[in-house]
């Protein structure tokens, strides 16, 4: 019986780890694509947020439609995962994940990993 449980559990945990790694890989690819698009050729390891980037209404107005929808939703939630945002915008989780990472790169959002989940939020503290 124990053997049965183990054999059932093992593939599941392996799959979860694969999913987690794929998500991390996906995030990194999105950041690389964004850096390439923006022509960021400096040697910094992480993306450098724009100085003085605040997610105010005029900024929201000047954003492309697809990013504005994500940004407005995170404004309302203040802290959320890509899945939570996608539940409100009715767009795919992967799409929201890409847009949220784009907003992180632009300096409007912060990202924090807790276990397997990545949380996105507006860093009001650093902007005070």
């Amino acid at each position: 019986m124990i053997r049965n449980e183990l054999s059932n559990k093992k593939p599941l945990s392996i799959l979860e780890k694969i999913e987690e790694s794929l998500e991390k890989l996906n995030d990194k690819i999105e950041i690389m694509i964004e850096i390439q698009k923006n022509g960021n050729t400096n040697n910094q390891r992480g993306p450098s947020p724009l100085p003085d980037a605040s997610l105010d209404v005029m900024t929201l107005l000047s954003m492309p439609d697809h990013l504005r929808k994500t940004a407005m939703t995170i404004c309302r939630c203040s802290r959320a995962t890509a899945e939570e945002i996608s539940a409100q915008t009715k767009r795919a989780r992967a799409v929201e994940s890409a847009y949220l990472n784009q907003l992180v790169i632009m300096g409007y959002l912060k990202k924090e990993r807790k276990g397997r989940k990545a949380y996105f939020f507006i860093d009001k503290e650093s902007q005070s």
Partner: peptide, 13 residues
């Protein structure tokens, strides 16, 4: 400034 306005939006929400 814009940062204040951003925080004001947060307070309204």
């Amino acid at each position: 400034d814009r940062k204040w306005e951003m925080r004001a939006l947060g307070r309204l929400l």
